[in-house]
């Protein structure tokens, strides 16, 4: 064995021991290239999802039905931008450059969550997104607070604290509609009908078809399987829907005494794959809007840089 190979072996042993002891891996620690690549892919995709996720909701800011709802929605959208920034900072600790990540998003070389390719057709969709989409995100994200990579785990702690408001405001919004006029109740039910199945798809493909799952679990990036988290989410939502006075659009949904869980119907994975492939209702619109926002912000970034240069601030 050469000296270099022996060194690599020793480094790997330290890394493995840290994982086994449930310690966190920190930016300057040695880590396998595949661990780094896999984290960059996952955290970048997560960051992209946060900032693309602004679009379907921001769509409703100007049409919010009251000043209270408008202020809440603006605060939520600002949080989503903040979550994107926490995550871009985390992924940069792995040596990725933010500029490259945005470029990959803009050119379709990195993905974001497929859920944001669905349109927000009515005001009730803002409520359904808060309750179901943010609810599914929380179910996914809470275990990530214990993920093996320190900066990602710390970003997730901040994010999870803030997501709780997102989910509750959505639930409250739907509750107001559900207790309102018949037309308002119908609007709430229609939004839940449209967002339920895409929300279940947010947990990713079934365990036996999930490409990255096994390795991510071994690296303690992922702590629970897709199907396990999906089941947890369904079990949480059923009683919440009852309290809302709304139904979930699944005739096969029923309590299974033996399993101690709710059974639910089959998910349309063909639809999921189509949306991932770029053929969802809003894929093209989301990316073109993101690129336009980036281009239209260029003069602000240029002006700030020119000001800093003129005043001779420290630049790296």
């Amino acid at each position: 064995m050469t000296t270099m190979a022996a060194d690599a072996g020793a480094y790997e042993a330290v890394f493995d021991a840290a994982l086994a002891a449930d310690e966190r891996i920190e930016p300057r620690d040695w880590m396998p290239d595949e661990y780094r690549t896999s984290l960059i892919r996952q955290i970048a995709q997560h960051a992209h999802s946060e900032i693309i996720g602004i679009q379907p909701e921001a769509n409703w800011i100007t049409r919010a039905p009251s000043l209270r709802r408008k202020a809440i929605l603006m605060a939520k959208v600002q949080d989503e931008a903040g979550h994107g920034l926490y995550l871009y900072s985390a992924v940069e600790t792995l040596g990725a450059r933010r500029e490259d990540l945005l470029d990959k998003l803009h050119t379709g070389r990195q993905k974001y969550s497929s859920i944001f390719n669905y349109p927000t057709l009515t005001w009730a969709d803002v409520g359904a997104i808060g309750w179901l989409v943010d609810g599914a995100a929380i179910t996914n994200q809470v275990p990530l607070c214990r993920c093996s990579y320190g900066p990602y785990a710390r970003a997730m702690v901040r994010i999870c604290k803030e997501e709780s408001f997102h989910q509750r405001q959505g639930y409250e919004l739907l509750l107001a509609l559900s207790r309102g006029t018949e037309a308002q109740r119908a609007m709430a039910q229609d939004a839940v009908d449209r967002w339920w199945w895409p929300s279940l798809m947010m947990f990713g493909p079934p365990d036996d078809e999930s490409a990255h799952s096994a390795q991510s679990m071994a690296w303690k990036i992922k702590r629970h399987s897709n199907d396990e988290l999906r089941q947890r989410f369904v079990d949480i939502c059923v009683p919440q829907a009852e309290s809302l006075g709304l139904t979930l659009p699944d005739p096969e949904l029923r309590w299974n005494e033996e399993r101690g869980h709710y059974d639910f119907g089959p998910i349309d994975w063909a639809e999921f794959r189509e949306v991932l492939r770029g053929n969802g209702p809003c894929n093209a619109q989301r990316i073109s809007q993101r690129r336009r926002a980036h281009e239209e912000g260029a003069w602000v970034r240029e002006a700030a840089a020119a000001y800093a240069a003129k005043h001779g601030e420290a630049r790296s």
Binding site: R98, E99, A298, R301, A304, A306, A309, A314, R315
Partner: peptide
């Protein structure tokens, strides 16, 4: 430097 208007052109704090 400032002609490239991306945020990553700016220093990290």
């Amino acid at each position: 430097m400032s002609t490239d208007a991306n945020g990553s052109d700016w220093p990290l704090w």
